[in-house]
Simulated assay, not measured.
Amino acid sequence: MKKLSVIILVILTFSATFAQKKPAYTPKIEPCPCAFKADSSLKTTCAYLIVPENRNKPNGKTIKLPFIIAESNNPNKKKDPVLFTGGGPGASSLGFIGSVHNRSLIKDRDFITFEQRGTHFAVPNLDCNDIGEALKKAFMYNLPKDSMLLVGVKQCRNKLLAQGIDLSAYNTVESAADIEDLRKALKIDSLNLFGASYSGGLMPTVLKNYPDGIRSLILDSPLPLFVNIDEEELVNFNEALNTVLTKYEADTIGNLPYGKLKDRFKQYFTAITGKDFTIKYLPKDAKDSLTIHYSQSELIGYLLNTLYDFSRIKDIPMIVSEMIQGHHQVYIKDFLSGIFRNGGPSGMRMSVYCSDKMAYARDAIIQQQYQLYP
Score class of each variant (00 low, 15 high):
T205E: 13
S190P: 09
P204W: 12
E180M: 03
I179K: 01
G195P: 06
Y198K: 01
R215D: 13
I218M: 04
G213H: 04
I218D: 03
L186N: 10
L202Y: 09
L202G: 06
T205N: 11
L193Q: 04
L207R: 08
A196K: 06
L191K: 05
L191T: 05
D189N: 15
A185P: 09
I179T: 12
I188P: 09
D189E: 15
K187I: 04
S190G: 09
N192P: 03
D178S: 01
G201T: 02
L182C: 01
G213N: 04
E180N: 14
L207C: 08
I179R: 02
M203Y: 08
V206Q: 07
P204D: 05
D178I: 01
K187C: 03
K208M: 08
Y210A: 00
K208D: 09
Y198F: 14
S197C: 07
S199T: 10
L217S: 06
L207G: 02
T205V: 13
A185L: 12
L193Y: 11
V206D: 10
Y198T: 01
L186K: 14
I188C: 10
K184H: 10
I218K: 01
K187Q: 13
I188M: 15
L202V: 03
G200E: 12
G213T: 04
P204N: 07
D189Q: 15
M203D: 13
N192T: 07
D189F: 06
K184T: 08
R215F: 07
T205G: 05
A185G: 03
D178R: 01
I214C: 05
N209E: 10
S197T: 04
G201D: 10
K187A: 14
I218W: 06
K184V: 11
P204M: 06
F194G: 01
I179N: 01
Y210W: 05
P211R: 02
G195L: 11
F194W: 15
Y198E: 08
D212C: 00
M203K: 07
I218F: 08
T205A: 15
F194K: 00
